[in-house]
Amino acid sequence: MHPIRKKRLTIVLFLVAGLAIAVGLTTYALRQNINLFYDPSEIAAGNVPVDVRIRAGGMVEEGSVIRDPESLKVEFRVTDFSASVPMEYVGILPDLFAEGQGIVAMGRMDASGRFIADQVLAKHDEQYMPPEVADALERASKGQHKAADAQKAAESTAY
């Protein structure tokens, strides 16, 4: 390669590498601000300010959803499988809200350690599957004797 071009290429590479390092260090330093939400472990460890508007996210605990029959009030627990936080919300929940589903809620921690949400967003994972496969997987996890044919059904459609 021509020496001038070699020199230019070196400059370009240094520019990009230097920039990458600078941005990498910045985002690393700001990682707590870039995280969209706190998870239940962080809340349980007391890393979360009380009465400040924050986001908290995690999985809605199975069997924890209590709906008030008189109003739109819903109480549930959000877990990351090592800690869980009680939450309270008044309003219409997104369609995807269900036990075992991920959510991100906006709100405040009150003094008693409850999270009072004023907005609940549903989070879904990257898994997509047809309803029949989901049913088959569900049956497989419940009934052992049906596990074999459910597994077969899942294998024939899911890769």
């Binding site: 969209l36 929940l93 997104p94 369609d95 995807l96 991100v104 967003l121 549903a122 879904h124």
Partner: peptide, 12 residues
């Protein structure tokens, strides 16, 4: 909007 419940969120 239909899945998360919001048009926009300031996530990364």
């Amino acid at each position: 909007k239909p899945t998360w419940g919001t048009w926009w969120v300031w996530d990364a």
